[in-house]
């Protein structure tokens, strides 16, 4: 097997006295789609947000593509990186949010070319062509000049995915990408994600869509109380869980 894309090594994190992540060990292989499931407050979002250093971890280490995230290691010491270098790491780790977070003052096309032009320095014309191609792929080729507030939730989330893809990421983090959508719009977003999975994109997906976890993801990690209780192929974790807590959770969501 090739080197893992993401490695969590004994990662812990607290908010004040509340320990949210308790010694997480996890590896994600390149091209793997891993879904994170678990009850509310179990630390799924926090885990995801640590991967691109939106949250600081207290101990342990996270590496993406062999690079320590957020810090520079010198012997046993890890110095936090200056803002610019952290930004450079984040540029290749895309994130898709529950509330889309599209830039409201920019058109769909401007949303997608913003980071390539401003962060990667891609010439505008080049970025526009690339963006138009990606938007075509997610089925929004006719919405380039629309503003986000004129789009449906499903369309907005597809723009957000296109915005993520425009950065040619090594890894995409999805935090409940369909939770804010009306039920009939969930499908169009999941279809886009399924296509990405088939193309071999590495993805970590926090989701409540059990069907998606079962059909698309290579592995499912069940989190509870800041720990990964079990992690394995969906056939095992979802169909035949070995832990009581997993069983209780699954019986509630199904």
């Amino acid at each position: 097997m090739s080197d893992p894309m993401v490695v969590f090594d004994r990662v812990s994190k607290s908010y004040g006295a509340l320990e949210v992540l308790k010694g997480i060990n996890l590896e994600v292989a390149p091209g793997e789609v891993l879904s994170l499931i678990g009850p509310s407050g179990s630390g799924k979002s926090t885990l995801l947000r640590c991967v691109n250093h939106l949250e600081r971890i207290d101990s342990g280490a996270i590496t993406v593509d062999g690079e320590l995230i957020g810090y520079r290691q010198v012997g046993n010491l890890a110095y936090e990186l200056p803002e610019k270098l952290i930004a450079r790491q984040r540029a290749r780790i895309a994130m898709v949010f529950q509330n889309f977070n599209l830039f409201g003052h920019m058109t769909v096309l401007e949303n997608v070319i913003e980071a390539p032009t401003q962060v990667l320095g891609v010439p505008r014309r080049h970025a526009e062509e690339h963006a138009a191609a990606i938007l075509e792929r997610v089925g929004l080729g006719d919405k380039l000049t629309s503003y986000p507030r004129m789009l449906s939730g499903g369309q907005q989330q597809r723009v957000a995915i296109a915005r993520a893809l425009a950065m040619k990421p090594k890894l995409i983090l999805f935090d409940e990408p369909t939770s804010a959508l009306d039920p009939e719009l969930v499908g169009e977003v999941l279809d886009v994600m399924r296509a990405l999975a088939e193309e071999g994109m590495t993805m970590m997906v926090v989701t409540h869509e059990m069907a998606f976890a079962r059909d698309v993801c290579h592995r499912v990690a069940f989190m509870d109380g800041g720990k990964i209780v079990e992690c394995g192929p969906p056939g095992e974790v979802l169909a035949n869980p070995s832990h009581e807590r997993t069983r209780t959770f699954l019986s509630k969501v199904n």
Partner: peptide
């Protein structure tokens, strides 16, 4: 909305750039 800054950050924009743009 604070989500706007988070999205900007996650795309690799520095604080200054996300403030300005």
């Amino acid at each position: 909305d604070s989500g706007q800054r988070q999205a900007a950050k996650s795309l690799g924009m520095t604080n200054g750039k996300s403030l300005w743009r």
